[in-house]
Design a protein around this nucleic acid. Structure first.
Lengths: 345, 345
DNA sequence: CAAGCTTACTGTATCGTTACAGATTTTGAC
DNA sequence: GTCAAAATCTGTAACGATACAGTAAGCTTG
């Protein structure tokens, strides 16, 4: 074969206005496509000078690897999927999480894809979808249950994921959780410090893992600080604000009305405040309240409410880091973090 | 060539535990890969019975087209990118939009990818990124400016997108907008109906398009209903709640204090309420207030505030539909929608 | 019954990337 | 100066899908 016309992969000049590919760089540098590919990933069998030259040209032409090409060849999607309930009530909490996740992913090659599901459908559906279609390299889920079937499924398939909230499956997986046990315990303490003894808790729905945490912190607080519980089981944090409001008013007018109230979320607290005031009672005077809170609104309008902050943005950051680390093979046990309530102001 | 061993593409049985591909179905049906591909997209040159058979087998094995394969071959990403500012202040508003977008995309092949940017970086960056990398088939942006450079860029490249908010570029593109002119006009009317005459407006930052809309509705309202404006130009909706609160208190204590206040957002309203009360004034008695509001919190805690609702979830739905229609070639002029303030309760 | 048209189906090449198995040159050891 | 080892570089095939240019058989038509 003639030396001048010896076979080359990149023998046609790339058209000027198209997205540069490895071929473009190969043509410009006179190297083979494989060499360029390996140079850009700093492979040990490529010369230092060549690497430098390739990197320079790549930067010059604004080369970005084609995600579809990489994905097709390697199976790596470079996608993290956040599985999100579309119910209005929960979205407020998860949106700062999106920010936290994005902050971390922005420093990586990963894209964030929102995979939604509605209350009317099986929460397993979005997980199955990601697993079956290979839509992502890792998944983040919320609203974790003790025997969460999504967790069981992903563990079984050995698929990287992180959960916002813990499980009780005896399986080690990455999670980030807020210490709701401590939250409720501290809340009881703060109410007792203000002379309150009859305490009512607006808790999360019983099927979520953190229900147990919050309840046990609550019970422990009652024991340790000598207070009693006022039952409030008709509603939980998944009920509408209107329902919570009505239930709270009723509780406040009942014979053994509470003098202290704990709310497991900021939204619930708003409804409780309204219910308390509907009953003709006044915060700080007749009733004290401690709420978990992730935004400032409540604090501005009812500064009497004591708020312990849960940082959802941090949760997003921690979960994103954990899932990526899991994808990279780090053991799950090293990727479990807890955050603690912080007194606001 | 022996008839029995005549060449076939799908001649090796697919391994059982892998994701099914066209090859899998081709093998199972005894058809060619091309035929299966065309049968599944209901091409006219495939027999009706064959199509039925292919569809059946595809459903049976749970076939989903490999997105990377499609994307690589056709260039279609089946992705819509939502470009999102990571600032805490704005994320509250955009999160119901995510829900609306997801609702629409869930009925299609499209995935939603969140492309973030921070205040410290150029807002053009994420748009350039999507354009340069071909990361999506369409884009949704918010916080639109009259001469929005992102809009100009995408128009120039003929790239499908939708904006939350209008522009003044003389370019026709899909948008969804809330009628802020009408909002401010109605707000003035409602305040005047309550006997208020000296009205203060907490407006959006001047560089956003809807600033003009809100201002002109405000001015028109003042003229039509015979009220006057109390200047409030030290802060806008992009300032921190704390800044707004302080500025509002100062305005309330100044010689020509307003007796009516209009807030362009629910978050701002909270700060204004706090400022008013800091000044020792009382809502409804000393001052009336109209706020744009997208959640219920304000209404629960300060029912005296009159709220006109902007539906961000609807905005998300409209924008998602518009962008998809634009991708499918529908003219931009048919994809421009407006929504109107709704009195809450 | 040949020519032409339909109908139904299929193989090849390709998108951009990387794993793999060479190929070529340089270096080093003796 | 020889030969093996090390250092650099490269072509081919494949991931899964589809555009395109066919092929083959059946059906009209005169």
């Amino acid at each position: 074969m003639d030396e001048k016309t010896k076979s080359r992969q990149a023998n046609t000049p790339p058209s000027p206005n198209e997205r540069p590919t490895l071929k473009t760089i190969a043509f410009m540098t006179g190297l083979g496509i494989t060499t360029v590919s390996r140079a850009l990933k700093d492979a040990p069998d490529i010369g230092a000078e060549t690497k430098e030259r390739v990197r320079l040209v790549a930067a010059q032409v604004g080369y970005h690897p084609n995600r579809a090409g990489v994905r097709l060849r390697t199976g790596k999607t470079n996608v993290i999927s956040l599985i999100l309930s579309l119910e209005e009530e929960f979205i407020g909490l998860t949106s700062p999480m999106v920010v936290g996740i994005s902050e971390i992913l922005a420093t990586t090659q990963y894209h964030l894809v929102i995979t939604p599901y509605s209350a009317r459908s099986d929460p397993l559906d979005p997980v199955r979808y990601v697993l079956d279609t290979g839509a992502a390299d890792g998944v983040i889920i919320s609203r974790t249950e003790p025997k969460d079937p999504r967790v069981a499924l992903m563990m079984e398939r050995n698929f990287p994921f992180g959960t916002h909230g813990r499980t009780e499956l005896g399986l080690e997986h990455p999670y980030h959780d807020f210490d709701n046990e401590r939250f409720a315990y501290d809340a009881v303490r703060m109410l007792v410090e203000r002379g309150r003894r009859r305490i009512m808790l607006l808790h999360p729905p019983p099927f979520l893992t953190y229900h147990m945490h919050m309840r046990s912190g609550f019970e422990r607080g009652l024991r340790d600080f000598g207070a009693t519980s006022v039952p409030f089981n008709k509603v939980d944090l998944d009920n509408s604000l209107a329902d919570i409001r009505v239930a709270c008013e009723a509780a406040m007018l009942a014979p053994d009305a509470p003098d202290g109230v704990i709310s497991g979320s900021g939204g619930g607290a708003v409804a409780l405040v309204a219910g308390i005031e509907d009953a003709g009672l006044k915060l700080a005077r007749d009733v004290d309240m401690v709420s978990k809170q992730s935004n400032d609104f409540l604090q501005w309008l009812r500064p009497e409410v004591i708020t312990l902050r849960e940082d959802f943005r941090l949760a997003g950051r921690e979960l994103a880091k954990a899932v990526i680390a899991r994808i990279e093979g780090q053991p799950a046990t090293e990727l479990q973090t807890l955050s603690f309530p912080v007194l606001q102001n």
